[in-house]
Amino acid sequence: MLTVQELEKIASQVRRDIVRMVHGSSSGHPGGPLGSTDFLVALYFKIMKPDQKNFTMDGVGEDLFFLSNGHLSAGWYSVLARYGYFDVSELRTFRKLGSRLQGHPATSEGLPGIRMSSGSLGQGLSVSIGAALAKKLNHDEHLVYCLMGDGELQEGQNWEALMYAAGNKVDNMVAVVDYNGVQIDGPNDKVLPMGDLQAKFEAFGWQVMTMYGNDMTEVVETLKKAQWYTGQGKPLMILMTTHMGNGVDFMTDNYEWHGVFPNEEQTKTALAQLDETLGDY
């Protein structure tokens, strides 16, 4: 069993990977994945622990994860590689011609660990509901996890899905909103205020938990607790407060780092703030 300190070391390496990948391809989204790194590391290494050596599309008998906000691909790819789905050396192909690591996650290239393409926002929660319903029909007691962005909640399909899940007691699923408060054009509240998200989810019939997503201890404890809240007739949402760009001071809470790659100098500065704990790819 990995300790919180060990998980933090993995997270530090994942953050280095993200910065190096985005720099290496001169494109991509560093801010979002840096903010959700702790969650993804905890989920794969501590909570789900899926079978990375025998990946199957159906994923029967194991927990499943869907990334709805596909632009967080750099972080997900790094976690998948560090967890052992594929060799970390492949991270250097991110966003390059012929790569399995497409700009946004794709199933077409056969990259182990990916079961659904994403990138066009607002679709992951519906997909996760479908996968959760398949688990129920298969009498498979494992859970389905879904990570969504907060800005993504502006897509109407999410609210169709929220209504469906509560109305049909889809309680073998944990949806997590990366609540960093910013999106491409600026703060959520400036682009399109979404009001009290917790109250909205509760009004839609969901159980809501909150956590601070950039504290490994809190993330692990909350995700453990969340498992206990499943199976009780209500879908479960975790409103996860994070800092976009977490771990790199000049990117933190700055929406301008949503989809901009760091130059040589900025990359150096960023990497100086992140320990190389597992060896760079």
Binding site: M57, V60, F66, L137, E160
Partner: peptide, 15 residues
């Protein structure tokens, strides 16, 4: 929209 997404998800699990 939700229907198409749920349908896509159901295939994961062999439906």
């Amino acid at each position: 929209a939700n229907m198409i997404g749920i349908a896509a998800g159901l295939t994961i699990g062999g439906k």
